[in-house]
Simulated scan of single mutants.
Amino acid sequence: MASSRQYYLGLAPDLLNPHHLAYEWFGVLWLEEDHHFPVIVGYWFSKDRSEILHNAILSGFTTWKEKSDHFIIMNMYQTIRRKQSEQDWIQRSRLSIRTLFTSPWKETPPGLYIIKSRDVYPLHASAVCKKKFFVWLEHAAVCETEKDLQVFTKKVHDAYTRG
């Protein structure tokens, strides 16, 4: 039995682009095959709608049906953001050894620090651990509100008081 593949494209304005920390158009392209669960095959953020269509074509997709069901699009957006948040939490990386010899880390005593990328929301928050010979990025999060930052801070605190 031949399988029937159908691609769908959903677009929504004013959703947070977690990389640029700006509210932009969001576009998601997904595949539905023989009534199975949808599989996201691509997504994009852009300042305008037409650039998302252009990016989908550049990615090799030329035929799709456009869906305007806000619930479906938001569900996919939230799924993508949730997976990104989980990845930000577990992605641990050692910063360059030169970091120890540059300001502000040169003068900072060892410990765990929460750093904000800027003073206005949305922002990136990072949990940075300075040790005697290394600086580690332990956790990161995108925070849209003060409450998000408080939740991140509490989660970091809980993780380090347990362990």
Rank of each mutant, 00 (worst) to 15 (best):
D158C: 02
F134Y: 12
R162K: 10
Q91D: 12
I72M: 12
E66Q: 13
K106A: 14
D48P: 01
F26G: 02
L123M: 13
V120M: 03
F26Q: 03
K147C: 13
G10M: 05
Y7P: 00
K106W: 14
T79M: 12
D48S: 07
E33W: 02
D69I: 05
E32R: 11
A2G: 08
A22W: 03
P122T: 05
R5P: 00
V39P: 01
G60Q: 05
R162G: 02
Y7T: 01
A2Y: 11
K154Q: 15
S103D: 15
G60E: 07
Q91E: 10
N75Y: 08
C143L: 12
Q91C: 09
F101R: 10
S59M: 10
Y23R: 08
Y121N: 04
G42K: 04
G163S: 08
A22G: 05
L95S: 06
K106M: 14
L100H: 06
L31Q: 07
F133P: 01
H124A: 03
G60W: 05
F101M: 11
H54E: 12
T108L: 14
W89S: 01
E144I: 06
R49F: 05
T63C: 02
P104N: 11
I114C: 10
Q6K: 12
L53R: 05
L31H: 02
V39T: 14
V120P: 00
D34W: 04
M76T: 05
E107S: 14
M76L: 15
E33F: 03
T102Q: 13
E24T: 09
L53P: 00
H124P: 02
L15F: 11
W136D: 07
Y43R: 13
K147R: 15
T161R: 12
T161N: 11
I97C: 08
Y160E: 04
W105F: 15
D14S: 13
N75A: 10
P38R: 13
Y77Q: 10
W44C: 02
F71R: 10
Y121H: 11
R118P: 00
A12I: 15
P18L: 11
L9G: 04
R162Q: 06
S59P: 02
G111W: 10
I90C: 04
H54T: 06
A127K: 00
S103V: 12
Q150I: 15
Q84W: 09
E33T: 08
A159D: 00
V142G: 01
V39R: 14
L53C: 06
I115H: 13
A2V: 13
L95H: 09
T153N: 04
F152A: 04
T99E: 13
P110V: 05
Y113E: 10
M1H: 07
Y23C: 03
W44L: 04
T153S: 15
E33L: 11
T62H: 15
L21G: 01
T79D: 14
W64T: 04
R118M: 07
H54D: 09
W64S: 01
P110M: 08
A2C: 06
G10K: 01
A127F: 00
F26A: 05
F101L: 11
Y8L: 09
D158K: 02
N17K: 11
M1I: 03
W30T: 02
K106P: 04
K67A: 07
I57W: 09
V39Y: 07
V151A: 09
G27V: 05
H35V: 09
